[in-house]
């Protein structure tokens, strides 16, 4: 169980605790300030600002202090955690007011206008207030589920984003090439920008064998799968796995599954 769950999960995962979706959490002035900062500045300016700060992590003298500070302050701001498709679908049943927005990371890194950022809760009102002419598509619960399933099929991993822990506001369907949160983690070691999921992938050695077409490899966004051509088998590196579960759907034999992170010694405690 991650730190967020032990503090806000009540025995469950923090993003599956219905209490964390309550509007009462919007009475916290710090949370409102964070939401207004992200929405009011514009997400493009926010990404520019946060990536500029995490860039300082490499500076020789102040780098370590900046990294510690960012990892400590980020839970009070905006960050996320990778979730499996099952968790993402369950999470939707606690949320309301679904809106689909274009992903800002894709726009800034790849100049693409992909409608994959599934927001809920206060985001609809904030978007209307700060960007009345911006692109926004309102969705029902069923339509939101359909978006998640389509994105999963296309190979986008799911990430639940919060505005000051533990208030989920969005599920972004990301890709490793575009996701700026993931890149802040990979490039600058800011782990809290995107935490790993609660599960890791495991390959059943009895089923995963003599495979000449390991399609699962192309679905892994984190370099956690290695193919052994002699045995025709895929090996999972649990320390690299983020637990998105995308690889499972590519295996026509059903050899890949998600197991709780805490049960795998190589991945336990690696958030």
């Amino acid at each position: 169980m991650c730190d967020f769950c032990s503090r806000h999960g009540r025995g469950n995962r923090w993003y599956l605790n219905p209490e964390n979706f309550s509007e009462k959490l919007l009475e916290d002035p710090k949370r409102v300030k964070t939401l207004e900062k992200v929405a009011g500045w514009g997400i493009e300016y926010y990404i520019d600002f946060t990536s500029r700060v995490t860039d300082l992590v490499d500076w020789p003298v102040i780098g370590k202090a900046v990294k510690a500070l960012v990892n400590r302050l980020a839970p009070n701001e905006h960050g996320g955690q990778v979730v499996s498709l099952e968790d993402a679908l369950q999470l939707l049943s606690y949320a309301r007011d679904f809106v689909l927005l274009p992903c800002a990371c894709r726009k800034l890194v790849g100049h693409r206008e992909d409608m994959v950022c599934l927001n809920f809760g206060p985001v609809k009102e904030l978007q209307r207030r700060f960007f009345p002419e911006g692109t926004m598509e309102e969705l029902s619960l069923e339509e939101a589920r359909k978006v998640l399933l389509e994105c999963d099929e296309r190979g986008h991993f799911h990430q639940v984003l919060y505005a000051k822990v533990p208030f989920p506001i969005c599920i972004c369907n990301c890709d490793a090439r575009y996701c700026t949160s993931l890149k802040q983690r990979l490039a600058n070691g800011v782990e809290v920008a995107i935490l790993k999921g609660h599960e890791v992938c495991a390959a059943d050695p009895d089923i995963c064998r003599f495979c000449s077409e390991p399609l699962c490899l192309s679905r892994c966004r984190f370099g956690a799968l290695n193919y052994d051509p002699e045995a025709g088998r895929v090996h999972v590196d649990p320390s690299r796995c983020f637990g998105c579960g995308l690889c499972r759907s590519a295996c026509f034999r059903g050899a890949l599954s998600l197991v709780p992170r805490d049960e795998v010694p190589a991945a336990a405690g690696l958030w």
Binding site: G42, E44, Y45, I47, D48, S51, K107, L108, V109, G110, H111, A176, R177, Y178, T180, K183
Partner: peptide
């Protein structure tokens, strides 16, 4: 860029 190194900022 295969790694998404470049960021467009306003």
């Amino acid at each position: 860029c295969p790694r998404g190194v470049f960021l467009a900022v306003p």
